[in-house]
């Protein structure tokens, strides 16, 4: 079952394309990360899905939604820099947006209390939002986005502007929310995406250049490499390793030998056999998996 289908979504600003022919689908209860460098079109996609921008072309459909149903009932959205009414208190703001989303006054009040404690703002609920810190505003932003229990929660760079503590709080909160709703969030910090998302959409210059689950992408772009370091001069072993049959390439970087191989298991066996036969003074032997960073560079580079 798909929750949301996006077909050939394009968006241009004054004729300049920002998003080009993007198509993807969401399964419910998944956390999807939209990754890309600044200016790749992440915010444009989120704003288009939220209805703040009108697509130049393309169709966005929700599962089991009538044609004339208001899309906004099913989505929650947190912009990158959420702005509130500084003269309202945190609790007043939540009740206000709750009522705007057609909750009754009682429901809105009960739900605000619940969310304030979920995002850890119970103590600050009667303080004016103008006095909140950046992290508190971000958490209030998440609370306002989910007040009407949307099926899809969209977060635009939810952690990029936060300090390490705020970042941790928001990521933990997202782990929690993932159980109840689909989350789509944009980020340019790859380790954050790695941490909470199940699926990735890699965006570059307005196009989706790669998509899939974390494991799928890992498998696809996996080029493990072996890193070796020695007690004495590593360079003396470079030619020996290069002559091993399964080794494709061996080069040296800052006293460490980096070995690339197609069949990593065979290379490991050969190196370890050579090492024990000649009694190499190995100090470390590591098999490194491709990081998200490497994968991203590789995809974008192509």
């Amino acid at each position: 079952m798909t929750l949301l289908t996006v077909e050939n979504l394009s968006k241009s600003y004054d004729g300049k394309p920002a998003v080009k022919q993007v198509s993807f689908q969401f399964q419910p209860q998944k956390c999807v990360a939209l990754i890309g460098p600044n200016g790749a079109g992440k915010t444009t996609i989120l704003r288009t899905l939220s209805g703040l921008l009108k697509p130049t072309s393309g169709i966005v459909t929700f599962n089991n939604m009538n044609a004339n149903d208001d899309l906004r009932k099913h989505i929650g959205y947190l912009p990158q820099y959420p702005v509130f009414y500084p003269w309202m208190t945190g609790s007043e703001f939540l009740v206000y947006v709750g009522k705007l989303a057609h909750l009754s006054k009682e429901e809105a009040m009960a739900r605000s209390e619940e969310l304030l404690s979920l995002v850890g703002l119970t103590e600050a609920k009667n303080r004016r939002i103008g006095k909140y810190s950046g992290g508190m505003k971000q958490r209030l932003g998440i609370a306002q986005a989910i007040i009407h229990r949307p099926r899809l929660l969209m977060l635009d760079e939810p952690v990029s502007s936060l300090d390490p503590i705020g970042r941790r709080e928001v990521l933990t909160l997202m782990e929690e929310l993932k159980k109840e709703m689909t989350i789509l969030f944009s980020t340019h910090i790859l380790s954050d995406a790695d941490e909470v998302s199940d699926e990735l959409l890699l965006l570059h210059q307005g196009k989706i250049v790669e998509k899939g689950s974390m494991d799928e992408l890992r498998k696809k772009y996996q080029t493990a490499k072996i890193e070796l370091s020695f007690q004495d001069e590593s360079a003396t072993y470079q030619s020996k390793i290069n002559s091993l049959p399964s080794v494709v390439k061996c080069h040296m970087e800052r006293h460490t030998l980096h070995v690339a191989a197609n069949d990593i298991a065979a290379a490991r066996k050969e190196i370890l056999m050579a090492a024990s036969a000649d009694n190499w003074p190995l100090t470390s032997f590591t098999i490194n998996r491709t990081s998200l960073e490497d994968m991203f560079m590789k995809v974008v580079g192509n």
């Binding site: 209805g51 208001d70 906004r72 820099y81 705007l100 057609h102």
Partner: peptide
Amino acid sequence: SGVSELILVKPV
């Protein structure tokens, strides 16, 4: 200010 981005994504 941008506050309308929060208000108008609600079904208003």
